[in-house]
Design a protein around this nucleic acid. Structure first.
Lengths: 149, 149
DNA sequence: CACCAACGTTGGCATTGCCAACGTTAGCGA
DNA sequence: TCGCTAACGTTGGCAATGCCAACGTTGGTG
């Protein structure tokens, strides 16, 4: 579609703009990640494991904003690729401990670049300062709505 | 989830921030519109009809960024509520001409307020100037990606 | 010891953004 | 004028996404 021919009411609606951009962003990132046979959830979980260390699936879900059931499927998928290891927690038998493998870390590093490329493509019309400002505004709004939640 | 506990990699990713905000925005607007037994597509199409006058379904789809098949369903729905009228175009028999009814216009005015309320709730942490800036940046990005498309 | 809470898992649901196909109709070029 | 292409509305379907409910298992607390 041509965003610029949309009704003015919609074009001036932040929620609408965010949604349009979300579609573009999702497709862009997904397309870039597809080149590495990877989906968006994979990147989120690998990143969380790298930054926070081994964690239970529930923790991963909370940190990445994913439902437990979706984490299960994603972990299974990543384990099959041997990017992570899933083992029962000897201390708390309800949990699985998920940890990044060497291959997983390597894959994560590669995905970092892929995702960064996608950001560049998405934000092409913005200067570095504008990108920072956009991030700041979006972060403020996002944080606000998780604070009251 | 708590956005603030997410991996730094994700929190600094514009595409991720946009998606998180898109989820919030969609739920907010949908919740507000649900009070009027209306969905988001309805508002888009009523707005387009008001601003551009009677139009074919294909035109509506192009302007609002909806697929033709989704427009068909939406138009059927709106016609049942008698907010719009759908009639075959006597000039071009392939087309339907969709026009806003009086009741539809009245409903649109009411929805304008509902949607504005949702924006306020979404953007609560931002000043008026910041909201304008956010809109401007998002518009630039959105326009860019419809230009190259 | 009894209860409640958290865990992982399975299965399902509604929405959303698409795409393919079909029959119909317009319009254009040969 | 004929034939091709394109646009139209409609139907049906698909995959991804974000959820929710239920279950059995396990931990922790009263």
């Amino acid at each position: 579609m041509d965003t610029r021919s949309a009704p003015g009411r919609l074009r001036s609606l932040t929620s609408w703009l965010i949604n349009q951009n979300a579609i573009t962003a999702r497709n862009l990132v997904a397309a870039h990640l597809a080149g590495a046979a990877t989906r968006r959830y994979h990147y989120s979980m690998l990143a969380a494991l790298d930054e926070f260390g081994p964690a239970s699936q529930a923790d991963l879900g909370r940190r990445c904003g994913l439902d437990r059931s979706d984490v299960t499927a994603c972990v299974t998928d990543l384990a099959e690729r041997e990017w992570i290891e899933r083992a029962p927690d000897p201390v708390d038998k309800r949990r699985n401990i998920v940890r990044l493998t060497k291959a997983g870390l390597k894959q994560l590093r590669a995905l970092d670049r892929v995702v960064a490329d996608a950001q560049d493509e998405l934000l092409e019309p913005l200067s570095a300062a504008e990108r920072a400002q956009l991030n700041e505004l979006l972060t403020r709004v996002a944080d606000h709505h998780t604070a009251t939640a």
